[in-house]
């Protein structure tokens, strides 16, 4: 009926056939990769598995085609794009589109994005970890209330508050500055960040706090030498999640900034597409360049990024 290629453990015939029907059961012994090479013929799940595999490859094509298209297009001239088949790589590849983008202040916009992202995430992390510490250690009703109000904030859609935020930023004289991007984004990042960090800080045993207090440690000492090290994984996920959000955010820059001095990357892409007009390869080269830093980060820290993205929702 089926052939195990190899099996590192002795299995009874019964167990063997169970596995064959549901390869998912291989998860019971995850370390054993060879287990997955089980060949099945005629098992009840076979057709479904083939359908699943087919669907998987089709979705891959759906995901990859647009990415493939922007990459090959960014290496050709605009004339080349119009004269040849658009889905095949150019026979005369050129890096001219990239040079054009770099000559049009790309690095300046890139720097703005870095400043806004780092500043926002740094403040979000410090403010959130402090708030999370207060909320978990607080025995008063105030702490609980505060947590409830902050949790409510997760449900506030940014889009719906953009008009008052615009008014506020104007009144504060911050319109068209990087501050206009940093301050509101900190505010909207705090609820989810506090939630995730609170869930983590709660798991720190109460005795650890007590013993530090007995040793005469103040609030700050406890925060910096107990809470911070213990909450590090949570801070990492929160940091990555919020950094991605801020890096890619579009509505805030669109509404709250205007001049090219303070333009950030997503808005710059939008402006490039207007400025470059029919030079589509140059616009797409800017798209590729803008995604490059995240791609590099993804290659080196994939697990952290995946965990960071689903943080707080996965449970």
């Amino acid at each position: 009926m089926m052939t195990h290629t190899t099996s590192s453990e002795p299995v009874t015939p019964d167990a063997k056939s169970d596995r064959a029907i549901t390869p998912e059961t291989a998860g019971a012994d995850r370390g054993n990769i060879k287990q997955n090479k089980v060949r099945r013929t005629g098992a009840p799940g076979e057709k479904l598995n083939i359908l699943g595999g087919l669907g998987g490859w089709i979705w891959l094509a759906v995901i990859i085609l647009p990415i493939y298209y922007i990459v090959i297009t960014s290496f050709r001239t605009s004339e080349d794009l119009r004269a040849n088949n658009q889905l095949l790589p150019s026979t005369n590849p050129t890096i001219a589109p990239f040079i054009k983008v770099l000559q049009n202040d790309f690095l300046h916009y890139f720097t703005n994005s870095v400043i806004v992202t780092l500043a926002t995430v740094a403040v979000v992390l410090s403010a959130s970890v402090m708030a999370a510490y207060y909320i978990t250690r607080s025995t008063t009703l105030g702490g609980k209330r505060l947590f409830q109000i902050i949790l409510l904030g997760i449900a506030i859609p940014v889009q719906a508050t953009i008009i008052p935020v615009y008014y506020l930023i104007q009144q504060l004289g911050l319109y068209d500055t990087l501050w206009a991007l940093i301050l509101p984004q900190i505010a909207f990042a705090i609820p989810l960040s506090v939630l995730i960090i609170v869930n983590f800080v709660r798991d720190i045993p109460a005795e650890l706090f007590e013993s530090m207090k007995v040793d005469g440690a103040g609030e700050w000492r406890i925060l910096t030498s107990l809470v911070l090290p213990m909450a590090k994984p949570a801070l990492m996920t929160v940091g990555i999640y919020q950094a991605l959000q801020v890096w890619n955010s579009f509505l805030f820059p669109l509404v709250l900034t205007q001049s090219s001095e303070v333009r950030v990357l997503p808005l710059s892409l939008w402006e490039y597409s207007g400025q470059f007009g029919i030079d589509v390869p140059a616009t797409l080269a800017a798209v590729v360049l803008s995604a490059l830093p995240l791609l590099v980060a993804y290659i080196f820290a994939r697990r952290h990024i995946v965990a960071g993205l689903t943080a707080g929702f996965g449970k």
């Binding site: 402090m130 510490y133 909320i135 505060l146 904030g153 909207f188 925060l223």
Partner: peptide, 15 residues
């Protein structure tokens, strides 16, 4: 301790 978070959240999200 919670003051910075409350200030940011209050001014730029709740208000």
């Amino acid at each position: 301790m919670a003051l910075p978070a409350v200030a940011f959240f209050g001014i730029f999200a709740l208000i």
